[in-house]
């Protein structure tokens, strides 16, 4: 299954969830300051593990950084 993850095309196993995408992106999913949007819709942290991804979806994984 191919998705777009933070602007990169990546291959995930069929049935992969948002939580898998967070790990693939290199984020520590347990730490505060991380958030995810799938096709522009924010996915709540409690739903990461049960939200399955589909091919060709666009996933953004962001975290807190210095700035502003």
């Amino acid at each position: 299954m191919t998705i777009e993850l933070n602007g990169r095309t990546v291959e995930l196993s069929p049935g992969a969830t948002v939580a898998d995408a967070v790990i693939e992106a290199g984020a520590d999913g347990d730490s505060r300051g991380v958030a995810v949007a799938v096709d522009g819709q924010v996915i709540r942290r409690v739903d990461w593990g049960k939200t399955k991804l589909r091919s060709d979806q666009s996933v953004e994984v962001v975290r807190a950084v210095q700035g502003g």
Partner: peptide, 20 residues
Amino acid sequence: TVALRRVDPLARGSALEVID
């Protein structure tokens, strides 16, 4: 104030951990 950016797997440290 802090910003949000795409995750950089190579980034070291966390501004938020310092603030918290």
